[in-house]
Simulated assay, not measured.
Amino acid sequence: MEIYNSTNNDIDEIFRLYKIATDFQKTKFTVHWPEFDKSLIEAEIAENRQWKITIDGKIACIWAIAFSDPQIWENRNTDPAIYIHRITTNPDFRGQNLVEQIVKWANDFARANNKQFVRMDTVGDNPGLINYYTRCGFDFLGLSKLQNTTGLPAHYDNATVSLFQITVEN
């Protein structure tokens, strides 16, 4: 298992995995991911903020990070943090605790970049996801009604989000 930045050569696979994840979300939840704009993914790749886990040369999992997330985290956005978005696991690799690997990586990455927190959000009040992410090491900080979603992906429109955080140990 290796963790690398995604490249432009990965874009087709990234969108294939997003489609699989969105199709799954549609079977379980009323809110699901929209089709993401290719320019968003290209920008994340260019800025080294799109990541992947590879296993035996195949992409097993992808995610993106941000260093600022003011519309979701509001006044907490001034804290030194990295923000994880859009974790997506290749169905061929489910059950391999890849989110735990991302959490370990994120802690190391945050520490190396002088960040105090690793943060994440999910749309809605989903007890299953809340339990899962707390088992992976996140503290559940509660629900927050988003005030300004201009420019955010469509699934954030008029949304309440669950907020998660890990305090990075030095």
Rank of each mutant, 00 (worst) to 15 (best):
T22G: 08
T54R: 14
D23C: 00
I14E: 02
Y18E: 10
T27S: 10
F29D: 07
N9L: 13
E47R: 11
I45G: 05
T30R: 08
S39W: 03
R16K: 14
D12Y: 07
W51I: 01
I20A: 12
I11W: 03
D10Q: 00
N8V: 03
T22E: 08
S6Q: 11
N5C: 11
R49P: 11
I53E: 09
S6N: 09
K26E: 08
E44Q: 14
K52I: 05
L40Y: 11
I55T: 03
I3C: 04
Q25D: 03
T54N: 10
N48V: 08
S39H: 09
D10S: 04
E35P: 03
D23L: 07
S39D: 13
I53N: 09
H32A: 13
A21F: 05
S39A: 13
R16D: 12
A21C: 12
N5K: 12
E44L: 13
W33I: 05
F36L: 14
N48I: 02
K52E: 06
F36C: 04
F15E: 06
T54M: 13
P34T: 14
F36Q: 11
F15A: 05
E35A: 10
K26M: 09
N5V: 08
T22S: 10
A21R: 07
K52A: 06
K26H: 06
W33P: 04
E13D: 09
T27D: 05
V31F: 06
I20Q: 11
I53R: 06
R16A: 10
E2I: 15
T27V: 03
Y4F: 14
F29S: 04
K26W: 00
K52C: 00
L17S: 03
L40P: 01
A43M: 12
A21V: 00
E13F: 01
I41K: 00
N48Y: 12
E13G: 00
P34S: 15
K28F: 01
W33Y: 12
H32W: 00
F24C: 04
I41A: 07
E44P: 06
V31D: 00
